[in-house]
Design a binder for these strands. Structure first.
Lengths: 122, 122
DNA sequence: TTGACAGTTGAATATTTGTTCAACTATACT
DNA sequence: AGTATAGTTGAACAAATATTCAACTGTCAA
């Protein structure tokens, strides 16, 4: 047990062995930042609704707007966010643009967290 | 194909059958809001680091502060957030408060999204 | 080629959210 | 009792973000 040498933190190290052991086991910063961003993409109710909707199959912007009762502009902005995060992909067909989930990972994560929420309700 | 009757949206319904079929399959708003909040809890780099750290075992506030090189106040605020979302629990022992993950669901979700990120890197 | 519609985009606004700061509580030790 | 340490809390500030609005592109059909 000794004074902490960190620049920013105002703490004493209480359990030195714990801290250094955990430090070694932790993922690197870049990976953890990527994970936070991944969750950020799902952390908005509009976006999670879009994901849930696309889980049933591909949909165009109009259909999603109607489904969520929101403007096409608002939906389009969020679709760009989801696309940037590689959660969805799109296919153009004439005037319409059809969006769908990028891969199966997304469904898996969605399903597990759904279970988590439904269990909490009980 | 007909005009949309929604109040807020500015769209035409392009694929009426799709929209009504998806509407039936979607989770209810309350559940989806709960899911968004669940992801929100994990969507910040400080919080995801805390989760990753606690995945190795319980830690007190000082240890986490030292580990992340942040003030105890900043960490404590985020711990309250995570606790409100039922992602972590705590145990008091004298002056110290030890935090740990609430249940195994959290690890599962963490692991799957970790895979997702690591695969994307390749 | 003109009009209508699907969708996108950038700027502006409003809201949410993370960290800091200072004051506070609670426990332990002398 | 007095002091030091672990941790919490609320307010204030700064940064990030969701939606709106208006203008825009691209495609189709008359």
């Amino acid at each position: 047990m000794g004074k902490c040498k960190c620049v920013n933190c105002d703490c004493n190290i209480i359990h030195k062995e714990n801290v250094s052991s955990v430090k070694n086991k932790m993922q690197d910063d870049e990976t953890l930042l990527g994970m936070a961003d991944f969750y950020k993409a799902l952390s908005d109710s509009t976006r999670i609704k879009i994901i849930n909707a696309l889980d049933c199959g591909e949909l165009c912007v109009c259909d999603i707007s109607s489904l969520l009762n929101m403007t096409k502009s608002a939906i389009s902005h969020q679709l760009q966010n989801l696309k940037e995060m590689d959660l969805i992909k799109c296919r153009k067909c004439g005037k319409e643009v059809f969006y769908s989930l990028a891969d199966k990972h997304i469904c898996e994560v969605f399903e597990i967290s759904l279970q988590h929420i439904l269990e909490k309700k009980k």
